[in-house]
Simulated scan of single mutants.
Amino acid sequence: MTDELTEITVVGDDKTGIVANITTLLFERGVNVVDIDQAIRDGMFRMTLRADTDEMVCTEATLRDALTELGDDLGVDIQLRFPTDREAKRIAVLVTKESHCLQAILESYATGELDAELSVVIGNHDDLKPLASQYDIPFVDVGDDSGIPNEDQILSVLDEYQIDLAVLARYMRILSPKIVFRYEDRIINVHPSLLPSFPGAAAYRQAKEEGVRIAGVTAHYVTTDLDQGPIITQRAFDVPDDTDVETIRNRGQPLEADALLEAVQLHLDNAVSVHRGRTGLRSGTDSSGYQLGMPADVETTQPDNPVDNRENLIDMPSESTQDIAND
């Protein structure tokens, strides 16, 4: 049902009257609000409305103009996406200096495997501009001499290219609510750990210092909580005894690209849904074309016994039975 609904995103400074004014405008034009979600972070207000516009008493252009005018009056940014708007698939890739994830995305795009238009690469350094140029993809440097990005410029570029999905291909900066709120469930990041373990910086070093035997990578939707967004795909790999951080990184980086590409394709295929901070495959999705976690052949190496046979435990003392029921 969500795919057939119009999405209205409101972002701006928190103040009274925003919800009432917008919902009143929609009601007066015959728009039925089906779902509404609100959040406030660092004084920034975000509201996402999903509405049925099939029986509205105005044109799409009229509704868009009315919401834009109301947003100007309220001092907030209102973005409107009708179901037909979401049929286009335009991607922006955000990068810093590491090339491996961008390289994988560019190659997939060049071979036609990536079913979308790769519109622009945005960097907070210009190190990867030559790589983007090899594939004739525009590159926009939004960073100052220290690599601090201009987020207003990022938003301007995303708007200019009418971006549907932003992909963080080892973009080593935290996005503020100003961007995240506007692109909720439309920003995908790859993190070099099996989240929720080792969030934040230097994840491979964290894995080494904690002495893990299995490390991994995670592609996830970005939220305002660092590295805590809904997980889409993961990959895992063994950590050899007494290995160093560089070896762990070399093992992980190809899997970063692999997990990120799969997460992007899942999003483009509209195969993944988000509910209460968790992802799931949409009903009717054929999962055989995806590798969400470990390869299927890993199952053949997993022991399948022994496991608790709870049917045989019914004669245990009542206290123990109660403990089992509460597991």
Rank of each mutant, 00 (worst) to 15 (best):
G71K: 01
V93K: 07
D54V: 12
E60R: 12
E98G: 01
G71A: 04
L70K: 06
L102H: 05
S99K: 12
L94G: 15
L67C: 10
E87T: 15
F82R: 04
G71C: 03
L63F: 04
D54G: 05
V95H: 08
A51K: 01
D85K: 05
A92C: 10
K89Q: 14
A61V: 05
E69Y: 05
R64W: 06
F82G: 03
E98C: 00
A104Y: 07
A61W: 00
R50N: 10
F82M: 11
E55M: 11
D85I: 06
D77K: 11
T96F: 13
C101S: 15
Q79I: 06
E87K: 15
D65K: 09
M56G: 02
L106W: 02
Q79P: 00
T84P: 00
T62Y: 04
A51P: 01
L63N: 02
K89W: 05
D73P: 00
T96S: 15
R81G: 01
R86V: 01
C101Q: 10
E69Q: 14
E55F: 13
Q103F: 06
D52T: 01
R86P: 01
V57G: 02
V95F: 10
K89R: 15
K97M: 15
I105F: 10
D72R: 12
S99I: 00
L102N: 05
D52V: 01
A88K: 15
D54I: 11
A66Y: 05
R50D: 03
L67W: 10
E87D: 14
S99P: 09
V57L: 09
D54P: 00
H100R: 12
T96A: 12
A61C: 00
L70N: 01
E87N: 13
D65V: 01
I78Y: 09
E87A: 14
T62E: 15
V95C: 11
Q79M: 09
K97N: 15
L70Q: 06
G75P: 06
L106S: 06
R81W: 04
L70M: 08
T96W: 11
R50V: 03
T59R: 10
A88V: 14
E107P: 01
V93L: 11
L67T: 10
D85T: 07
D73M: 10
C58L: 04
H100Y: 12
P83Y: 06
R64N: 10
G75D: 05
G75S: 06
C58Q: 02
D72A: 13
L67F: 11
D54Q: 14
T96C: 11
L106Q: 04
